[in-house]
Design a protein around this nucleic acid. Sequence first.
DNA 1: GTCTATACCACGATAGAC
DNA 2: GTCTATCGTGGTATAGAC
Lengths: 250, 250
Amino acid sequence: MARNASPDTRSNQDTRDRMFDAAEALFIERGFDGTSLRMVTTRAKVNLAAVNYHFGGKNGLFTAMIARRFDTLNDARVTLLDEYRRTAKGAPLACEHVLAAMFVPAMQLARDPRRGGRDFLRLLGRAYVDPSPTLRDFLAERYAPTLERFKEAFSEALPEIPRRELIWRLHFMMGALAYTLAGADTWRLIAALSAVETPTDELLLRRLAPFLVAGLRAPLPDFADPGAALAAEERPQRTARNSEARSRAA
Amino acid sequence: MARNASPDTRSNQDTRDRMFDAAEALFIERGFDGTSLRMVTTRAKVNLAAVNYHFGGKNGLFTAMIARRFDTLNDARVTLLDEYRRTAKGAPLACEHVLAAMFVPAMQLARDPRRGGRDFLRLLGRAYVDPSPTLRDFLAERYAPTLERFKEAFSEALPEIPRRELIWRLHFMMGALAYTLAGADTWRLIAALSAVETPTDELLLRRLAPFLVAGLRAPLPDFADPGAALAAEERPQRTARNSEARSRAA
DNA sequence: GTCTATACCACGATAGAC
DNA sequence: GTCTATCGTGGTATAGAC
């Protein structure tokens, strides 16, 4: 194999890429725990032991596979964020721009078959959502600086939101994003239930953006009044005991 | 469902409950694939074969464990929704009430040590987020009717949002909810990074609610103009058509 | 009927021989 | 780089004790 190419680096790289591709596809479908090395190596048509040789084990393979995509994504994100900041010339960033700095690079990668293609966004979502401690720790540690940059940017773009509140909203945002991207199979369910079209990823993110912007800018919760945020909390229980009071609820 | 009312169900029920509790705790920490039956039975101090006897296997144990919590939760949700609907007397439901019908029963269960307690919300989140096809299919199939009810209710509460759009927003909402609830460990990370207080579940949901309400009510995305929702996509330098000031950015 | 001890078989990960 | 042995672990099935 690869006899006319450069000595060994070529086939070497091919092997690694085939393993990456196989691991990626399987991980998207079945998660970290649900994917075995045998599945990966069978699909990649490489020997089982090659995993150990190239990556030192399952953890190494999967973290490297994820880093392959995420590093370029996050670099592009930070670059774009800096770009926006430069064009703003000292003016505070707009919330939409910060969001765009997160989304646009993701969309671009999703359009590039050589760097993830259609599956890229699903990989993104799965990775954030996977329960395996290995991946959680890896992601948290490796991308904490990027996350910090965006936290700063959002804080600048939304000065009216107290920092503490903002951090939680960013967390909610990550959740909506990750869950939505991960749930390609859920789309089918929703589509079946409601005769919705199956969306392109781009359309999806375009739908998600206004939702998130509005959420980030939402009025602050009122912790003083238990009934403000979620309507009356205990009231419905009381009506069970006292059916008279039921009629005058408002 | 399938509950034996036989006289000597006592010790039987204890055993089953211990298995449930063990499975629940382990599932919250490690997910479906990451939890083995041997872990469960060891922790529950029952014999390995008891799983097969009582539940027919791993799938049976875990789906029953989840149903134990989710059935009561979803029943309470639908009941509360009907309660709100009755007190509204034909007037359209308020969005906050529909959200409350989802959240309040969850909070109540989270406060009741006999029915989940503090871990209940994490179980909820993990279950929605777990990659195992077994659980995904189970949840989708069993709770589709409830979801349908809430879809109707939201549609009634938010008539200005087109139905198609609304369905996606509900999906985003579920994502924010599930991800946030599942990520108890992520809280620590966020807290460490930013000196945020560790929140009670109740505080958390109270923070989440305004975020979600605002998101559900957000202005509709503009699909015609590629630059509207996410600023300019390919030209980060400028939000509008005006490309004069581009010179410094490059 | 409820629970236990134990056997079984498939599979996964790793390490060492080639 | 590959092949194969090995060992641990997984879920499941059975036979029998209470």
